[in-house]
Every structure is written in C-alpha cells, then in structure tokens.
Design a protein around this nucleic acid. Structure first.
Length: 1005
RNA sequence: GCGAGAGUGGCGGAAUUGGCAUACGCGCCAGACUUAGGAUCUGGUCCCGCAAGGGUUGAGGGUUCAAGUCCCUCCUCUCGCACCA
C-alpha cells in the first residue's frame, strides 16, 4: 500500500543508524581513559534494584496524613508487549506520585492486568496453548517492561483479573447485581445528606403483586427474575456458520467476519443483561460531582441521551375486531376513568414522541419489525410481504439498518389505528428505521415535521399535513432543503423546528413549547398519554460466547427431560470462585453456543440437595467486568474475607487522579460508575462516584512521513489532486479516477513553499506531510525496549513528557529523544567531573553561598516546576529545568545550595539520574521522601524591571526602572531615553495607559 | 450531517489568561577542539530589508489604548456520534 523506497535513495532505517555508531565508536575515539559519562545502563538497573529491595514505594494499609490515590488504566497484556503509548500516561502518574510523596502525601499507586480477552483465546484456538499460559507469559513481559521504566508502583498490590482470587469477587459482585432490583420510587438520603429518589434494593424486598403470589413460588421466582439488575433475555448475536462461532461486534465488518470474510447472521440467543438503564438518570446527574474534562462528560451525556416527551396510546381495537368508531368511544370513556395504565393494554399501540404538539399531523404509524403486535396487525393480504420484510430485517445488524445513505424501506400491515386526539384512522406500517429497542418500539409519524418521516412518506406516497408554522423569517436548514419537493407547482419542505400550531383544532396559534406542556397534561387527564423520559442508553449485554472470561456463578434448573425450566439458582458465596473447567481443545464446536458447552460433565452438571438437576451457565462475562472494580481491589488486594475492607475503602476512595486513553471515555467509565453505584446502593462502598479527577492522555503517532504521489507512468501528481478517501486499490487521482501510487520521500527531496511542502526539483508538485497512528502494518511502531536500550528509561520518560501537552495527540520524533537524552547528559556533566578518571563531583560544586542571581533563578525554577507539575504541564516543567541547567553549566561555581534542590526538582521526572546524583552529593538514602524544595517569593522580585513602551499601541522601545516605579518615574525615564524621547519630541501625550512593572502605552497626537 | 477540540518558525511546542509573540528542545548554518565527527563546546537562526524600518499567530472582519488570547463569518485538520422518534 505504501511504497517504502524513495527514488534515488538507498533504503534507510530511521532508528538504527546513529546509536549503533555511537555505541561502538565513542569509546574508541575517546581520550585514553574512559571518562565517567552519563550511563543509564549502569544507573537505572541499580536504582530499580534499590527501590525493590528497600520496598521504597510500598504503601501502608492506611494513609498517614493526606492520601492521594493515583491510578492508571491498567493494560491488556497483549502479545506485542508494551507500546510507547502506555508509558505516556504511566509516566505522568508516576511523576505526580513521586512529587506528592516528597510533599508528604501518602500515595497509593498500584498496577495490574486486564487479562481476560479474546486474543489469548484466539491464540489458543490456533496453537492449542492454554490462554492462561499465554496470558501469564504476556504479563511477565509487561511487568518487566514497566519495571524497566522505573515506575514507583507498589508492586505488592499487583493483580490480574484472571486470578481466581480476583474474579472470585467479580463473581461476588455479579451475585450482588443478581440479588438487586431498582426501586424508582424509593426515597432516601445520600452520603452528602441530599434527599434522593430511586435506589437499588435487595430482591427480597421486591413487592410481589397478589396475582403473582397466588400462582405459587415458581411464578414469584420468575417475577423476581424479571426485575433483577442482572437478568436474561433473548438477544441477537453474530453467528458465523462458516467459522462455527459467535463473533463480537468488532469482529464483524460490513456483515462479514473480520477473519475470512464469511457471512455473519444475526440469531437470537439467551443472553445476560445488566439493567444499567435504571441508573441512567443518576449516571447523568452525578457527572456534576466529578472533575472530568467537559468533553468527556459531554460524550457520556450524549451516550446516555436523555430526551423528554410523551407516551401516547393509539387505539387499534382488539384482536379479531379492528378499530372502529364505537370501540374508540368506549375506549376513551374507560380510559378517562382508569387513567393511563403503566403497561399498554392489548387494544392500543403505545408510541413515544418528543413532539406531542404534532399529534394532529400524525398521518401514519410505524412499528419496528420486531414489535410484538406486528403479527396480529398484519392482514391476510399483507402477510407475505410483511413476513418477507421481517425476515430481511432480522438479518441486518443495527449498523446496517442505520446506514443513512440508504432509502427508507417498509411495508404496510393492512391495519389502522385511531388518532387519540381526533379519531382519524392512520395506517400502521412496519419499517426498520424504527428501532425496537428505543422508546416503545413504535412511533407516530409526522412527516411534515420529522425529516425521517418525511422521507418515508414521500417514498410511499403517504399524506403530509403541516401542523406547525415556522416562525417569521425562518430559514430552512440544509437538511430540510435537501428534502424539498414540488407538488403541482408548489414547493414543499419539511420543518423540524419549533413554531406555532396550525391545523390543530382549538390549539391553533399555540407556540410549540406551550403546546407540548398543555397537550401532555390534557392527554394525561383523559388517560390517553403521559409525560415520559427516554434514554438512548441500552441495557448492557453482559454475556459473551467465549472461554477466556469469568464464569457466571449461576445454575439452570432442568426438568425430567433435561431441558431448562427457566428457573435459576446461584452458587453460594462460600463456593466462589467458580473456576473455568480444564479443557484441552479450544476449537469452535460448530454450534451457536459458547465453548463452555463442551466442558466436562462434572463441571457442567450437578444435582442439588433437593434432587433437582442443574446445568451450569456456559456464557462468560465480558472483558469489561474485571475492569469495572479493580480500583477497589487495589486498596485491599489480599483480603480473603471480603472484596474490600470498608475501613480501607473509606480511607482511600475515591481515586483522586485517573489517567488513561480517551477510547474508554464512554464504556469503561460508564460501566464502572454503574457498578459503583449499585455497590453504593447496597451499602458495600461509601461514595457514589469512583473517579474524582480524570485526565485523558493523547495518542502518540508515528514519526512524520512525507508522501508524494506518482502515476503509473512515473510522473508526479500534486497531493491536492488526490481524491479524498481511499479505495481498496489505493489512491485515486481526482480528475481521471486513475490509480496513483503513494511514495515515501526523504526530507532532502522536499522543500517548503508557502504553506505547503513541495518536491525540491518540481516545486509545482505538492507533497503530503503527516503522521499516522502507529501500526504494525505501516511499520512505524516504536518499541520502548529499543528506546530504553539506546537512551535509557529516564530519557524515554522525559521525552514523552516533553513532546507536548499530556492531552494532545503528538507525533514521535527520534531526534527529540536524542535531545532530552543530551539534556540529561548535560545535567550529569554539570554536577559530575568529566575530567576525572572516576566518578566524582564537579569541582565547581562547593559549599558556598549562591549569588543573588543564582538564588533568584533557583527560586523562580522551584515556583514554576511546582506549579507545572501540579497542573500536569510536564513539558514546561522540563523546559524550566533545562533553562536552569543551562545557567548552572555556564557558571564556574555551582553552590550545593542550588544544586541539591535542582536534583530534587528533577527527581520526579528523571528519578534514576536524580537518585544517582543525590547519592554522589553525599546522601545515604533515597530521595523519594526528601521534602520538596520550597521557594521564597521575596527572592523572585528583581530590583529593576525592564518595561516595554508602546507609542500609539506599537512597541517602540523599553526602559529600565526600579521595581514598583510609579507612572511619573516611568514617564521621566521614557523622556530621558534617547530613542523614545526623540520619538515623543514635538508630540502631545493624549492618554497614558500604565500597568505597573508591566508596560506603558502612550497615545500621542 | 450533528457535537467537541485544534490551527503559532523548517519541526514538536511556549506565552502570569487581554499587556515584550516565537521560551525550551529538534533541525539547520558558522566556528572551536580534532587524523576524523553524526560526540562535545561557542555563536547564529520567524519573514522582507545593506540599514533605518516594516511585516507576522489558518483567511477576512470587529471590540479595545492594547488581541495568538474576546466577538462574528469562512476555511482546514483531528476525535466522537450518526435514522434514538
């Protein structure tokens, strides 16, 4: 896809050249004896061993003094090993932790492994290696790599989600979810003392309706099962018959399997669901209590997708007796008495709408193809068409169905419903643009005021009645204009905004907002509708058809024939963990069932004490499960009595700083918050939000690449003339549609012209310059092992922090690493004696008082570095340290009083080098708990300041005046200045803007 | 399409939140030490101009004594969502 050879240039490997030369040549050409140069290969393992042996970063069970819980999103230990993206966030947290320790905080900073997951299982299918083996081998690699980078984790708290000691409690939490129901009306007071309504409660407290009670214990159990936060439902899965396995959504691309491109069908399978929707409102409103980036909060808000509107019932008559005027009248009368029922009755289709004010414009209805009433509403003449349509729709995934580019499709059922406000019959259609899983799975279609309905109505020639007049001077949106049509010479357009009611009986003239409120109230009074809130958020599909996941602690009861009865039992808490069975073969067995269906019988079945045959649940939990609560277990990782000791939980939670990739902005963070809230409701934890402050580190891209484009005949073509996007064949020329070949170019072949890069010998050809996401296929992945080998861990850490703001996306640059590596070597040389044969202090490092200038710079640096680290602005902290070192290196005398604090300032960022220098300065133990240097603000003040002078808003010069000088003194200095005074001569100062110690602006005439 | 964020030297990026634009690093140029240098050190490096001076923060407009920073219009890029009634 990407040609690697640049014309006329020998192939070149960007990373391999310089360092090899340096390693071999430097000692050879050095002066006779080897000088004690900066040597990370010696220093770094030495201090890593020291920290490990002395348990320097071991965290006590309870904080002594102020606590700080700093957490990284723990990695999935892939077979590829650590990526340079990982150490970015990890370095940021490590700096924060080291800094906090020096400031006297007790820091909890743990690391672990999100170790269940598909790749290990796929590897097992291919090679027969047990996923456990692969996983623990990968973990060992990751652990080695992280230790090599010198992170100050408390490794005694390490955990993996695959450890039975860990997933024992994952299963335990599942049982809590299974044992809970959500009571939306329960009033209580939260830990902030605020009154709340709605809480997760023990299932034993679920009120059982009398009619259910009367049907016996099995009925009661089924009723309870329907209300649990963990419940079962038939849900479609991606079944690939050719591969004989069920696929995850991300393994399906365009309806075909990612591997092999085999067709994938959607078939319903019994699935576990978690009722996260019950917590939608709290997940939304509690975002106000956390210090997260607004953008992430917004993402979550959009994902939850709250909307307000109304539910309205449309009368359809009873099965066998379709809607008629008499039935409609009777229904209205009975509804006025009974009010609006919680569950829709058999004689209505219930719709959800955000625009109840457009009820008079509803000219048809649409049900989702899966709506339970479709069968009964389909008339004989329509039956075959409806069946065919439903069949077709069931094959499509949600993704296919929501493909916007497509025309709307649908089929008439043959039946009609009656509009509750005017009794008008409206035809009932089914169409896949209505989703079964949102709202009530049915809509009233108001084509005049909904773009989707408009499109559908035009497609199937259904009536369009405008019922809202746009406000005066309304300009139609681009989308509205795109759907414009002309009927008998009149232009018609949909209008989706708010305005004033027309063609709506006595409501005519009512503004939209008022109309909504009014009609919702009136419908409610007549028992025909009610105000309703809906969420885009769906319940969480919590089961996977995989082997390498947590087994569910659930048994299914079997009848005499060995068929499941639908009733369930749980494993007792004391029987946890439920371990995975020992299996040898991981190959798919060819049936749409989980691999665990092949487990040995002794794992699969048992007979309960009461003689009932039980079959174990064979689905496993998704990878999200283990990461939902790991932050809690880190606080008390070895506890065998409880998932966490409540006293420790109270002492350490919440997580004060959580850093990780933005790719988890929605799902992981939403799922964790949900579990935490359930645990909170059930009294297992004491706060309702787990992560106080969240920061997303940006992505690190590969090194910038210059790309030119060449036609088949070898002529160049400007990047401007390349069609946007790519096809399978590669890149296409805009005008001709001809395929062109991308060619990597060397920097020497390219120059800058205007805002573009162009070919040096053909300046009319524009070349593309950009960085790409690191990927194996592109070959631009940077391996941390290689970087550490060549430059050392401190250099890698420092470079990743120096690249730019933590949250920004930024390209890798090998020369940039060399730059920071040179800085560390300069620090080494400014404190050690490079002339000596052995390592010793630089002769300039003396026990003398610093000059006022040196002292001022030190205090300025302390102030700036302190602030920068607090703000996670590590790039500027590093540049401050560079400035300081530049000054230090250029002065003959380097007083200890400024060298020592400088080493301490460097310590969080480059801990190995700092420890080594600290030791060299004569200190006997680690600097990890040395007090952070403080600064004296009085020392920051200069005796004199240079003030910029503007005349008429333009910079004209500068004057030097005593600090704090008043306006008159400064003006005097300006007039005395030869240049400035001259410019003012003969002019009249109309106005003076004076900012003390900052600037002066003179307005002259 | 909708939502969010971002556009500053050859490159990564700074800029007391409206007050000296381009800190720091890379790269490049020159010099020093050298048999040699891709090590190290010194100096230079936004653009035009010999200079005086003028210009410059994606483009255009506005507010202000003063705009990279605030407001409006537009362009480009990145990320997220995408028939949610």
């Amino acid at each position: 896809m990407h040609a690697d050879l640049s014309p006329g240039e020998a192939p070149r490997h960007p990373r391999s050249r310089a360092p090899i030369h340096r390693r071999f040549r430097r000692p050879l050409f050095r002066t006779p004896h080897t000088m004690p140069r900066y040597d990370p290969k010696r220093i770094e393992p030495k201090w890593q061993a020291y920290w490990e042996q002395n348990e320097t970063f071991r965290t006590p069970d309870f904080p002594q003094g102020p606590k700080l819980y700093v957490l990284d999103m723990f990695p999935y230990p892939s077979g590829e090993g650590l990526h340079v993206g990982h150490p970015e966030g990890y370095t940021a947290t490590d700096i924060t932790c080291r800094f906090a320790r020096m400031r006297g905080q007790t820091v909890l900073h743990p690391m672990g492994w999100d170790a269940f997951g598909l790749p290990a299982e796929q590897h097992a299918i291919k090679t027969g290696t047990h996923p456990r083996e692969t996983t623990y081998r990968n973990i060992a690699t990751f652990r080695r790599q992280l230790k090599m980078l010198g992170f100050s984790y408390d490794w005694s708290r390490e955990l993996a989600t695959t450890d039975p000691d860990y997933f024992r409690w994952t299963q335990w939490i599942f049982l809590k979810l299974f044992d809970s129901w959500y009571d939306p009306e329960f009033g209580w007071t939260d830990h902030r003392g605020q009154a709340r309504v709605g809480k997760g409660r023990p299932i034993a407290e679920l009120p059982i309706p009398a009619d259910i009670q009367a049907q016996g214990t099995d009925a009661v159990r089924r009723y309870q099962d329907r209300h649990r936060l963990a419940y079962q439902q038939e849900a479609p899965v991606n079944w690939c018959p050719a591969l004989g396995t069920v696929l995850a959504n991300e393994e399906v691309i365009d309806g075909k399997s990612e591997r092999g491109s085999h067709p994938v069908v959607r078939i319903p399978l019994r699935q576990w669901m978690l009722r996260i929707t019950a917590y939608a409102e709290r997940l939304l409103s509690d975002l106000d209590h956390v210090a997260w980036p607004e953008s992430i909060k917004l993402l979550q808000r959009n994902w939850i997708g709250r909307s307000e509107g109304a539910e309205v019932d449309f009368y359809i008559g009873t099965p066998g007796s379709p809607a008629n005027a008499a039935g409609f009248a009777a229904w209205q009368t009975s509804r006025a008495a009974s009010r609006f029922p919680l569950q829709p009755s058999e004689d209505v289709v219930r719709v959800y709408t955000t625009r109840p004010d457009t009820l008079y414009g509803a000219t048809y209805m649409v049900l989702a193809p899966e709506h339970p009433f479709v069968d009964r509403l389909t008339t004989a003449t329509q039956r075959s068409a409806v069946e065919a349509y439903r069949q077709q729709a069931s094959m499509k995934s949600d993704l296919d169905r929501t493909d916007l580019a497509k025309e709307k499709t649908g089929v008439f059922t043959g039946s009609h419903a009656l509009n509750p406000v005017n009794g008008q019959p409206v035809p009932i259609w089914i169409a896949d643009y209505v989703l079964a899983s949102y709202g009530t799975g049915a809509i009233m279609a108001v084509p005049a005021h909904d773009l989707r309905d408009w499109e559908f109505a035009v497609q199937f020639d259904l009536p369009i009645i405008p019922v809202v007049a746009p406000p005066e001077g309304y300009e139609h949106s681009r989308d509205e204009l795109a759907l414009e049509r002309t009927v008998k010479g009149t232009v018609q357009r949909p209008f989706a905004g708010e305005g004033t009611a027309i063609h709506s009986d006595r409501y005519n003239g009512t503004p939209t907002a008022q109309f909504k409120k009014q009609i919702t109230g009136e419908l409610a009074e007549r028992g025909l509708g009610r105000g309703a809130v809906n969420y885009r958020l769906r319940d969480w599909l919590f089961s996977r058809q995989h082997f390498w996941g947590e087994p569910f602690p659930i048994w299914h009861e079997l009848d005499a024939d060995g068929n499941p009865t639908g009733l369930m039992r749980t494993d007792a808490e004391s029987e946890l963990p439920v371990l995975l069975p020992e299996m040898r073969h991981f190959k798919p067995h060819g049936r749409p069932e989980p691999p665990l269906a092949e487990a040995p019988d002794e794992w699969r079945f048992q007979t309960a004490a009461d003689g009932v045959r039980l079959a174990r649940e064979t689905n496993t939990m998704p990878q999200w499960a283990g990461s939902c609560w790991y932050y809690l277990r880190f606080i008390d990782p070895k506890n065998s009595q409880a998932f966490i000791d409540p006293a420790k939980e109270a002492a350490w939670m919440p997580v004060d700083l959580y850093i990780g990739g933005a790719e988890h902005a929605v799902l992981h963070l939403l799922y964790s918050r949900f579990w935490h809230k359930v645990l909170y409701d059930r009294g297992c934890v004491q706060g309702d939000e787990p992560f106080h402050r969240l920061v997303n580190q940006g992505m690190i891209l590969g090194e910038a690449e210059l790309t030119g484009y060449q036609r088949a005949n070898g002529t160049w073509i400007s990047a401007r003339d390349i069609a946007p996007g790519q096809t399978d064949e590669g890149v296409i020329e805009k005008g001709t549609g001809q395929a062109v070949k991308p060619v990597s170019l060397a920097a020497s072949q390219v120059t800058k012209k205007g805002g573009d890069f162009v070919l040096a010998d053909q300046p009319e050809i524009i070349v593309e310059s950009r960085s790409f996401k690191m990927s194996k296929s592109r070959g631009n992945v940077v391996n941390p092992d290689v970087v550490v080998d060549q430059y050392g861990a401190d250099s890698l850490r420092l470079y990743e922090m120096f690249m730019g703001p933590l949250e920004a996306t930024k390209p890798w640059s090998t020369t940039g690493v060399e730059g920071v590596s040179r800085f560390l070597a300069r620090v080494w040389r400014s404190i050690t004696d490079e002339q000596a044969d052995e390592i010793r202090l630089h002769p300039g490092v003396q026990n003398v008082e610093p000059t006022p200038e040196q002292n001022r710079l030190l205090h300025k640096t302390i102030q700036a570095v302190t602030q920068d680290i607090e703000n996670l602005s590590f790039n500027t902290a590093i540049s401050r340290l560079m400035e300081f070192n530049n000054a230090l290196a250029s002065s003959e005398v380097r007083p200890r009083k400024i060298v020592e604090p400088f080493v301490l300032l460097l310590a969080p960022l480059a801990p190995h080098l700092a420890e080594e220098l600290w030791q060299l300065l004569g200190h006997g133990k680690t600097l990890a708990y040395e007090p952070w240097p403080s600064f004296d603000p009085r020392l920051l003040v200069l005796a004199e300041v240079e003030i910029p002078v503007q005349i008429g808003g333009k910079m004209r010069g500068k004057v030097t005046v005593p600090t704090g000088a008043d306006e008159a003194t400064v003006l005097q200095a300006i007039h005395a200045d030869s240049k400035l005074g001259g410019q003012l001569a003969g002019k009249q100062i109309v106005k003076t803007i004076f900012v003390p110690d900052r600037m002066v602006n003179l307005i002259v005439k």
